[in-house]
Design a protein around this nucleic acid. Structure first.
Lengths: 235, 235
DNA sequence: CGGGCGAGGATTGTATAAAGTTTCGCCTGT
DNA sequence: ACAGGCGAAACTTTATACAATCCTCGCCCG
């Protein structure tokens, strides 16, 4: 009973002010309204949410643990700037974990979950139709979280939340062109496989889905003049 | 950075007081000096470490995120009490991640790492010889963390740290008999496979090692009158 | 005119104090 | 004698004040 089973993706407790701050900042980061490297001043955020610095601080610490905010001692908190190496690690971890998650999700599938999956796909299509790139990225991540919730595996869910948050940041940083269309189709295919309880196909589809997402990225590794400079100075 | 004085879980910066508190409490929990369910009062800990409640609080929040401390609103922090279901999830996650970690460790293996592995095995044998069960459990966990460090995969390392911390708690809660002897041999076998760069064998050995650890546990699931009562009331 | 140096301002880190909530003991009423 | 409620103490939570640190900008010197 260490962790309560929560039906939704995150904690939407209206009374929990720390949670509200965390949610708000997370959403702002994942929807690309806050760019990597942006300073997150404590007073500034506290002013916005009408909260004291104490609460802002705990929220920022939680986000730092999730990997989407980096805290530098005596400097403050900044939106994290994942390196290409980070990106590769994140996607490798996702390729390891998510096929297994789909497996479990199929075991735990029920009509109620099918409903939720269907509704989510509709939401994704709707955002896609509107051309709302921000919502698309957010919903794309939430799809994966939804599958993880289905699996009923709280540890995998926790890990995946972290990976998803970082992934969204990575995608927005390193995406090559604006090609957000293909993702939805993949999701629909995966849902079909889940409905038909075809584990092998679902796993394969999830894997190739992740591979395609990563393939759309431009992970300049030893390139970029600034990066080389920073690397030289850092070593 | 390769040769640190202490290969403990996190950064043991002497100047970082929050880190010291976290290390101290973690060690106390993992060595079974603090039993699950024990209240961790902020004043109490602050007194011990000569720190203000502010610092204690941040340390406890970090430990809560790691899963070895549970914070209940307006109640305080307690040593986490993983359920049998939690235990199964933890070990399943370890069976998924650790074989992959060994794979990467073999890729990154170098003489310096072999040295560290050898020294660690010696430490484990020494603790075993002394019959120091507490040190044995701690070192056993640190072996797995060491392999994860070798892999150079920071995300896997972070995940594994969480899993190891919870595992230690689980083992101390649910172990059947006192059979701490077999672990060390497995570790030595795994190191041998790493030295010989035999990935397949290393993976298999890691997997069976984890299976044996879990097999030594007694995970009473739907038993215990109290548990049933709590379940009924909770739903 | 360029570069080092120091004071000022701003921001974070830490401690302390006020406010709200829970818990435990005690007391009363039946 | 026991159940129920009231009240005080202890704790967590939140806010605010203080101290330390770092960055910026202007000044002085070479």
């Amino acid at each position: 009973m260490a962790a309560k089973s929560r039906p939704t993706s995150d904690a939407p407790d209206a009374s929990d002010r720390v949670g509200r701050i965390r949610e708000g900042v997370t959403a702002a980061i994942l929807e690309h309204r806050l760019l990597p490297g942006t300073k997150l001043g404590e007073d500034e955020i506290g002013e916005i949410y009408g909260a004291s610095r104490t609460l802002v601080r705990t929220a920022l610490q939680q986000l730092a643990h999730e990997g989407i905010v980096s805290i530098e001692k005596n400097r403050g908190a900044f939106v994290a700037r994942p390196t290409p190496a980070d990106a590769r690690e994140v996607f490798e971890a996702r390729r390891l974990i998510e096929p297994t998650i789909v497996d479990h999700a199929i075991d735990a599938a029920s009509p109620a979950w099918f409903d939720r999956l269907g509704r989510h796909l509709a939401e994704e299509r709707e955002a896609e139709r509107r051309g709302d790139a921000r919502a698309s990225v957010r919903l794309s991540g939430e799809f994966h979280k939804l599958v993880a919730e289905m699996s009923g595996h709280s540890i995998y869910l926790g890990f995946l939340k972290e990976l998803i948050a970082r992934s969204s940041l990575i995608i927005l940083l390193y995406r090559r062109h604006d090609t957000p269309a293909c993702g939805t189709d993949h999701h629909a295919e995966i849902v079909t496989s889940i409905r038909e309880r075809d584990k092998a196909r679902a796993r394969a589809q999830m894997l190739s889905h992740l591979n395609e997402i990563e393939a759309e990225l431009f992970l300049k590794d030893p390139a970029a003049d600034e990066l080389r400079l920073a690397d030289v100075l850092g070593s």
